[in-house]
Amino acid sequence: MPPKESRLLRVGVLGCGPIAQAAHFEACTKARNAELYAICDVADDLRDRMAATHAPTCSYNDYDKMLADPQLEAVIIATSDAFHVAAAVRALQAGKHVLCEKPLATSIEEAESLRAAVNASGCTLQVGHMKRYDAGLQAAKTFIDGPMGQMVALKAWYCDNTHRYAMTDAVQPLMVTSKHARKPSENPKADLDRYYMLAHGSHLVDTARYFAGEIKAVDARLLNRAGIRCWFVDVEFANGTLGHLDLTVAVRMDWHEGFQIYGEQGSIIGKTYNPWYYKSSEVDIFHESDGSTHRVLGADGHFYRRQLEGFAETVLNGAPQTGADLEDGIASVRAMVAIAQSARSRLPVTLSDVAGPL
């Protein structure tokens, strides 16, 4: 890991559950320009265990007390989806910068309500679409924005697999739980259509937008058969690019995620790995100009650490925001709502016409 810089962003992590344990605590301790200043969780046993393991400067069982700490500069919101917006608003009102786990919200209106809080605070809000910090995807984006010319078509897929947990359990830390942890009033997994779209579809939608820009309309189909949910989504992008998205949970094969992009002066084929392997995507970029193919090799694959470093660079040094900003987070929620409405109605849906929750 790179050595720590002299000026570190003092970060507090809200929530000591699985995503904090698997990603954010380590990202804070390894980031070159940030530190794990504080952790917060209402479950005393879980919080004490994490404090003993990761050694933050401070540990809190009350979120407002953590936000009142004048030394705290930024918060990573690593809670259940239902708590994201309220926690973000409280942090912004306290003058703290926010890196919020995806999805930003579970309804369009809830996501849009953050605009006022962000504008009033003057703080940075970034959404945790960490795949934007995959070096393979970044190489593809550089080609798209430069020599590729006009994009013609994009196909992208995100297919979780039945053997996912046997694979990830071998590389993730032992997840510690507590019966005292705060849970949403409704079980997020009670509606699996909604749960899979929020958990997995948010990645797929943001990757598509990262490459091809704003989504204008969607035409979605959903099939639930043999315990497999499959969304096929035809996408109309605002720039005229044709798109097709495949979200399938869970395929009877290896983890299957990637994309193909066809452009005026070249094409791109990408294979993305399960994120917990911390392996950058294998991305082949074909240049029509000289008939050659290029691939990034040996890239830094700690997406969560790189995400935090980019966020800290914006907060500390005013660097341009390289991750998903507030408007990206809102647009992702809007696209998921449109896909869900299109799948239910079996009709095309224009994103500007949608409202409400997923």
Rank of each mutant, 00 (worst) to 15 (best):
V333Q: 02
G213K: 08
Q126E: 15
L46K: 05
T314Y: 04
G301C: 07
A120C: 06
Y165D: 15
A338K: 01
Y63P: 00
G258I: 06
S281K: 07
R225G: 04
A117G: 04
A34E: 04
L99A: 07
S332A: 13
K96A: 00
G329I: 00
N239T: 02
S178G: 08
M197E: 03
F232Q: 15
R47C: 10
M148K: 04
L242M: 12
S292W: 10
E214S: 14
E257R: 14
P275Y: 05
Y273V: 05
R115E: 10
A355Q: 13
H203C: 07
A116C: 05
D160E: 15
S352H: 09
E264Y: 06
F311E: 01
F286D: 07
Y278N: 15
Y273N: 10
V42G: 09
Y133E: 05
V235R: 04
R344Y: 06
D284A: 13
A55W: 09
R164M: 14
A331D: 02
V235N: 03
S352I: 05
A181W: 03
I77H: 02
P103R: 02
G201K: 07
E186I: 14
V152T: 11
R344C: 07
C100V: 15
C28E: 01
S267W: 08
R49F: 10
K131P: 02
A208H: 06
S113V: 04
R229K: 12
G323C: 10
C230Q: 09
A27I: 02
A319Y: 05
D44F: 04
C230F: 06
V249S: 09
H287R: 13
G128V: 01
I215W: 04
T248W: 01
A111C: 05
S202M: 06
M130E: 07
H287A: 08
A140M: 13
T124S: 12
E282R: 11
V171M: 07
D246H: 13
C123A: 13
G227Q: 11
D45E: 13
Q93A: 12
S345E: 14
T314A: 14
E327R: 02
T168L: 13
V171Y: 06
A226S: 11
G329P: 01
P357R: 09
K155W: 09
V251F: 00
R252W: 03
L154Q: 02
Y195A: 13
C123M: 11
C123I: 00
A212E: 03
R194M: 06
L326K: 02
S107I: 03
G270F: 03
V152D: 08
P357K: 10
Y133M: 13
G213L: 07
H84Y: 07
N33A: 05
D81S: 10
S59G: 11
Y273G: 00
F25D: 01
G201A: 08
L351E: 06
H24D: 04
G146W: 08
K216C: 05
R90V: 00
A88E: 03
P188D: 07
L242Y: 09
A111R: 00
L198Q: 14
M50V: 03
R182C: 08
S289T: 12
A140D: 02
V296K: 12
K216P: 01
L297W: 09
A238I: 01
L222N: 08
L204V: 04
R182P: 01
L242F: 09
M167V: 14
E236K: 14
K155I: 09
L99H: 06
N224F: 11
